[in-house]
Computed example of a mutant assay.
Amino acid sequence: MTRTTLTQVTPVTRGEIDAAAELLTLAFADDAPTRALLQERGDDVRARHRLFRAVLLGGPLQNGTVDGVRDLDTGRLLGVAVWSRPGETGMRTAALPEYVRAIGIGGLSRALRVSDAIDAHRPAVPHWYLKAVGVAPDAVGGGIGGTLLSSRLELIDATGSPAYLESSNDRTTALYRRHGFVPLTRLPWPDGAGPTAMWRTGGTPSRGARHAAE
Rank of each mutant, 00 (worst) to 15 (best):
55 V>N: 06
56 L>V: 10
56 L>R: 08
56 L>Q: 09
57 L>E: 11
57 L>G: 06
57 L>M: 12
59 G>D: 08
59 G>W: 03
60 P>K: 01
61 L>F: 04
62 Q>L: 07
63 N>E: 14
63 N>V: 04
64 G>V: 03
64 G>W: 04
64 G>K: 03
64 G>H: 02
65 T>G: 01
67 D>A: 02
68 G>T: 05
69 V>P: 07
69 V>S: 05
69 V>K: 01
70 R>E: 03
70 R>V: 02
72 L>E: 14
72 L>R: 15
74 T>Y: 14
74 T>F: 13
75 G>V: 10
77 L>Q: 10
77 L>K: 08
81 A>P: 03
83 W>D: 00
83 W>P: 00
83 W>H: 02
85 R>P: 13
85 R>S: 15
86 P>N: 07
87 G>Q: 09
87 G>M: 06
89 T>A: 13
89 T>Q: 13
89 T>K: 11
90 G>H: 09
90 G>F: 05
91 M>Y: 08
91 M>W: 08
92 R>V: 05
92 R>A: 15
93 T>M: 15
94 A>Y: 06
95 A>D: 00
96 L>N: 09
97 P>T: 05
97 P>D: 07
98 E>K: 14
99 Y>V: 15
100 V>L: 14
101 R>K: 15
101 R>H: 08
102 A>T: 10
102 A>N: 11
104 G>D: 14
105 I>W: 11
108 L>E: 09
108 L>T: 10
108 L>D: 09
109 S>T: 14
109 S>L: 14
110 R>V: 12
111 A>I: 01
111 A>C: 06
113 R>S: 12
114 V>W: 03
114 V>T: 12
116 D>Q: 11
116 D>M: 10
118 I>E: 06
118 I>H: 02
118 I>T: 04
119 D>N: 08
120 A>H: 03
122 R>M: 04
122 R>N: 01
122 R>C: 01
122 R>K: 04
123 P>R: 05
123 P>D: 02
123 P>M: 01
124 A>H: 08
124 A>Q: 12
124 A>S: 12
126 P>D: 00
127 H>M: 05
128 W>N: 00
128 W>L: 01
128 W>G: 01
128 W>D: 03
128 W>H: 08
129 Y>S: 02
129 Y>E: 01
130 L>M: 05
